[in-house]
Measured scan of single mutants.
Amino acid sequence: KLLSSIEQACDICRLKKLKCSKEKPKCAKCLKNNWECRYSPKTKRSPLTRAHLTEVESRLERLE
């Protein structure tokens, strides 16, 4: 599967780190437990900047 097509777990399953069936409108866990089942939009991760990478590398060197 391509990364862009990976389905996201519902908010509660993601928060509780449960295996989500990803069914809509309610996944199996939410249906069974009568929880409100919501699927928040995916958040875009910002790409690493060179400055951040350099900072992490220098912190790693100090720890070694």
Rank of each mutant, 00 (worst) to 15 (best):
S5F: 09
L48F: 06
R38S: 12
C10S: 01
R38D: 10
E36L: 12
A51M: 11
E55W: 13
N33G: 12
L53M: 14
K44L: 15
V56W: 01
N34A: 12
K26R: 14
C27I: 03
H52A: 00
L18A: 11
K19T: 07
A51G: 04
S4R: 05
E57R: 10
L63I: 14
E61F: 13
K26V: 10
C30I: 07
K42S: 08
E61G: 13
S4H: 10
S5Y: 10
S58D: 12
C13Q: 00
S46L: 01
N33A: 11
S4Q: 10
K1Y: 12
R14D: 01
L2R: 11
K24N: 15
L53K: 02
R62H: 08
A28R: 15
K19G: 15
L48K: 07
D11P: 03
L53H: 00
P41V: 06
E23M: 13
K32F: 09
S40D: 02
K44T: 12
T43R: 05
P47T: 00
L31T: 11
R59E: 02
K19P: 08
K32M: 12
K16D: 00
C10L: 01
P25S: 09
R45E: 07
P41G: 05
Q8G: 06
T54G: 10
K22Y: 08
R50Y: 08
S58V: 13
S5N: 09
K19Q: 06
E57Q: 05
R62M: 13
C13D: 03
L31N: 13
T49S: 04
E23V: 13
R45K: 05
C13I: 07
A9D: 01
R50M: 08
C20F: 08
D11L: 05
C37D: 08
C13M: 05
A9T: 00
A28P: 02
Q8R: 05
N34V: 13
R14S: 07
V56P: 03
S5P: 10
E55T: 12
Q8A: 11
C13W: 07
C27Y: 04
T49I: 05
S40R: 04
P25T: 08
K32R: 15
L53I: 06
T49E: 00
S58N: 12
C30K: 02
Y39H: 08
K29P: 06
I6Q: 12
K24D: 11
S21Q: 03
R38H: 11
I12Q: 10
A28F: 10
K24I: 15
C20G: 06
N33F: 09
K29H: 01
S46R: 02
L3Y: 12
S21L: 03
K17Q: 05
N34P: 00
C20Q: 05
